[in-house]
Every structure is written in structure tokens, then in C-alpha cells.
Amino acid sequence: MSLLHTQGLTKQFGGLVAVDEVSFAVDSGETRAVIGPNGAGKSTLINCITGALDPTAGSVEFDGDDITDRSPHETVQSGISKSFQTASIFPTMTVRENVQIAALASEHGSFRFDFLNRLSGFDGVHETTDRMLESVELLGDADVEAGSLPYGDKRRLEIAIALASEPKLLLMDEPTAGMSPDETAATVDLVEQLQDELDLTILIVEHDMEIIFQIADRILVLNRGGVIADGTPTAVQDSEAVQEAYLGGVEL
């Protein structure tokens, strides 16, 4: 039942242990959150899963395969996609092209020699692109230059790009960072809607506790690289270790 599973995942930078023997699982269809104070190792953990960093020790298993040593593009092709904290888009290309490239990668794999084939002939790609654009309500802006979008739209484009890879697992790295309450609510709605529509499993790194408790099925709490709590929102809320770690921090 677990789609993603890490075992003793460790990442060390010289003397600093950023991720310390983290073992946890994400079940198919659930929304899993990873929280923790600044510097807890959340981003590093995500980077180890996506392949952006090579773990010092431990393993990552996804959908039955060991993906520990896979490069980022291989991981995406395996079915994990990440949406970036700051919208990582292609500014001078059109909104459509931004999503198209992810859809293309999903359809034809990490590399092909098809430099003489017409892009316009890839029907599946175009259909997926339009579908994604519609889900994030950017279809009307499809031919606009991506860099000229307002910031909120850029974030939605970011999510569309991540989704166009047609992942089984979507990693979201602080999707509401820096957003106003309205934008945050809209994003949460979008995420919930997408989850229903696309039958997605989500692993979300977040600081905003309200969101977490609203949408998360289970929460993993990290502090100083190690796991200090792992369970349902209620269980985590009651955990002393968590309360200690967040002393003076965000309200629970």
C-alpha cells in the first residue's frame, strides 16, 4: 500500500548531518505532510527523494523500485514530480509551451532523437497540455509570455507544469510560501480539487499549520534532521516532542 518508502535515509554535508536516519512511508492516495522548524532538513529530504542530492546512506523505494541513486530526470520518469517553492518557469516562453514541455517529457521519455519530427504532430501532448491548463484555469492565458503573468498565476503555472508530468506522487515544496490568505485558500482548494480529479498522492512540505491540519492525512515532523513525530494530525498535535520543538514558533 505504500507508494513511497524511505529507509534510514541520511544526508551528511561534511560535519553537518542534515537528514538523520529518516524512515517513513507515503501511502497511495493520501496527502502526507512534512513539517518542522527552519533547518529541520525538510528541503534536503525532498532533494534526496527527487535525486537532486545523493543520500549518504539509506534508501528510497517508489512503487516497488529502488530509486535511491536515480538522477532527477529519471525520478520524474518513474512517476514523482516536484513543484518548486518559487515558481520555476520558462519566462520568455508562452504559458502553453511551459506546460507542453512537461507533457512532452511525460509522453516521450527522457530523451529521443526526434529532432526532425513536427511538434505539432504530438496529439497526446497537446491534449494533456490543454487539460492541465484548464485545471489551473490558465487556458485563457495560454499564449501569453509566462514571465509577464502576475505572481499568483506563475505559482499556478508552476503546479500545472509539475502535474503535466502525469506523476503518481506530487511533491510540493512550500506551495503557499509568501502568499496572502486569499491566495493560500485558493491554492488549497486547487490542490484538493486536483487530488480528486487526478487521483494523486501528495507529499507536501509546509510551514502553514492551518493548511496542514486541513488537508493532511498524516504528518511527519522533523527536527534537526531526525524524525520526532509521525502520525495523524491529532497525534502530532498532542506530541510533547513536537510542542517542544515549536516552542515560540508557529501556533499549532
Binding site: T50, H73, V76, S88, I89, F90, T92, L104, D114, L119
Partner: peptide, 22 residues
């Protein structure tokens, strides 16, 4: 061709291209 799209994207944001699976 797809290359046109991909190469242009590489010139704009290489990291993202890797993270869409290429």
C-alpha cells in the same frame, strides 16, 4: 520539433528541464 522547445527551455531554466523529466 520537440528539440526546438527543449533547447529553448534549456536556455531559460536548465534546472526545471531536468525536473520535468528530460
Amino acid at each position: 520539433s520537440p528539440y526546438g522547445l527543449i533547447l529553448e527551455a534549456l536556455g531559460e531554466n536548465e534546472e526545471r528541464v531536468e525536473f520535468v523529466g528530460l
